[in-house]
Design a protein around this nucleic acid. Sequence first.
RNA 1: GCCGGAGUGGCGAAAUUGGUAUACGCGAUGGACUCAAAAUCCAUUGCCCGCAAGGGCGUGCGGGUUCGAGUCCCGCCUCCGGCACCA
Length: 803
Amino acid sequence: MTYDHKAIEAKWQQRWETDKVFYVGEDSEKPKFYNLCMYPYPSGALHQGHVRNYTFGDLLTRYKTMRGYNVLTPMGWDSFGLPAENAAIETGVHPRENTEAQIATMTRQIKQLGAMYDWDRELAAHHPDYYRWDQWIFLQLFDQGLAYKKEAPVNWCPKDQTVLANEQVVDGACERCGTVVEKKNLAQWFFRITDYAERLLDDLEQLDEWPERVRTMQRNWIGRSEGARFRIEVDGLGETFDVFTTRPDTIFGMTFCVLAPEHPLVERLIAGTEAEEEARAYIRDAGRASEIERMAEGEKTGIFTGRYAINPVDGEKVPIYIADYVLMGYGTGAIMGVPGQDQRDWDFATRYDLPIVRTVQPSDGWEGQAYLGDGPTINSGFLDGLDQAAAKEAIIAWLKERGIGEGTIQYRLRDWLISRQRYWGSPIPIVSCPRCGLVPVPEDELPVLLPDIQDYAPKGQSPLAGVEEWVVTTCPACGGEAMRETDTMDTFVDSSWYFFRFTDPGNDRAPFDPARAAYWMPVDQYIGGVEHAVLHLLYARFITKVLADMGLSPVQEPFARLFTQGMITLGGAKMSKSKGNVVDPLELFETHGADALRLYHLFMGPPTDDAAWDTNGVEGTSRFLDRLHRLVVDSEVVDGEDSPELISEANRAIRKVTEDIERFAFNTAIPQLMTLTNHLALAARDGVSRATFDQVVGIILKLLAPMAPHLAHELWERTGNASMLALEPWPVWDESLIVESTVTMVVQVNGKVRDRVNVSPDISPAEAEAIALGLEKVQGWIDGAQVRNVIARPPDLINFVVG
RNA sequence: GCCGGAGUGGCGAAAUUGGUAUACGCGAUGGACUCAAAAUCCAUUGCCCGCAAGGGCGUGCGGGUUCGAGUCCCGCCUCCGGCACCA
């Protein structure tokens, strides 16, 4: 018989809510613990990824509560964004209606899982009392020059009809819809995250409780390169351009220069030269191609400008090319071509018959390609004979002395493009005035409300542009007629500070009270998917640093400890609606119950790893819960002796489960409870004292309380406890009870296991040797031969080396 | 190409510090209960040889260190993830 999980679950969900067990303030004597799962996009229905996420999070909430912490566990909604807007285009239903219906559904389902939150702190990004503070933060960045509008070549998704941040372009395609993105020159809003590149990189070092892979991904994304920047003169034109290189030591090997097609100097270079017309055609073509098309070419193409550059070290004149393998967005958009030491330059030089000069003596096997290794510098005047490091130092000093260059650090990170030509987002609080330029909306006029509209269809500009009565406004500076900014903010702006808002969600005078943030921040444990490794997690770190610089955030880093969960797969692919391989958690609530489902998610494998779904596994955890229920409620306990062995095992289970939860090894904590339960069932059948039985049951229920809370609470009550299990102290093991009376010692001969023998745990090496030598099998293997060595590690193992 | 992670039974996996490889669960096979089925309970379940006692082999591959290696070292292979014309 299976127990009535639906009745039990409903009963306890209600009790926890009425008793407000997980609602907290800052007035506690207890240490604080801020436990946060990445707030969800309200997609309409819980999927297994949510279940996994909230199961881990809720386990921790409940465990830390029992351990005596004041646990903040809030929940909210990342409720602006494209899917609601795309649905609105199809159905004509306002995104707000759609979004709020989905929030209601998901709230109900989260409660059905038994995951507990302080719902008094619930927030949603699309509420004016939330996005008002998005706008406020935007204005702070604007004041500090950290938010700016600029025309630049940006990524444009032709399907979603909006620009995208660099971070949202995956393999040259829109991360949302997979459409190949185009490059467009558009005036867009950026956050100057590059100003924080160094700090964002350096502070990764202190995040030692983050997964290494996330830190590595951020390191790569920020992309620090050390090198030099120096000025190069164009022969006979009175113009110069700067280049960046990581290999200034190879400067004598420069046999050409290359500018990106978008480089501002290009126009001056080609004007009036023989190459002008051809060059213009090349630039036009390069502009048209998307970045992946450019790369797909394989061959590096370029065109001679007809101009020459003067190498500052030796006065050599080298041709200047335009080529699209040089990117305007990185470094200075111009390079020195050193084919001897750079494979890309080698390829280009080979194609256009440019000379190749080695400045580092290649070792064998480098014929026909650039040599990237170290070695004595050659063909390089005063640098000859120096190794790479020394040559770099020398040339940088030389450039600096003459005032034409210096050592510098270059980052790959670009500024964060935050404007979107879409409706369902927070309006950017800026007014464009023909007399005053870009004027911030005064803080006391916030929020700039998102007006209701009828037509959401994308038209290449924000649908808001069509709302004339909203767009036309007065300039806050001069009072004249002006136009509102019609773009909305990237939803990643909303999510880059929501964890601060949870500390003070009702505040209507500020985004949050710094004192309350000081109590709760940083987030002690952050749990979510690894897909946010560079997007959300980088942006949130950036905004936190900005808020810290303003004196609002007490911390430089928002998330002390990060946990990224693995994906759920089925049939070798990520479980997803579009692939049609989903197993709906709601059905499992019906058939097996929330506890069994939670337990399966905890049990199926290491929480960080991807895990292959198997509904039979839920069957398994469900069976375990049934067995426990039967044992506690229905079984006859045959009266017998106290069992020190069972008590000992129960204490070992406390230690194991506690240690496993601390190290996020939930999958190994559960077998411990299964084994203990099985042994208790055997004891109940064969005879055990009521005292032992009750004590072990109590321990099992407490250990199970964070994992399968409904059944644990029900059985706690059924065994005569009036207290709320969730608020009981976590059990403590007694080390003295864990010691076993006998242990199995392995006896090896030449490293192979030949026998086992039960011995006392405090046996001496000499006793161990005597006992082992007395074993018949061991004698058989030694068989008169000389024992050359005895490795005794009592009481676990003894090894005789014979031969 | 660079960076990160992983490879253990039929399957999900365990072995936390170099010391009993395969805990726990799933699946499978046999049995008990039942008219039957479900549920439950009991037993078996890495591979090979053997009637058995027992023995040999075994953690992606090849070497090494060690009394002893899934674990450490060297060299590979495969898979997954990230970055990538970033000068």
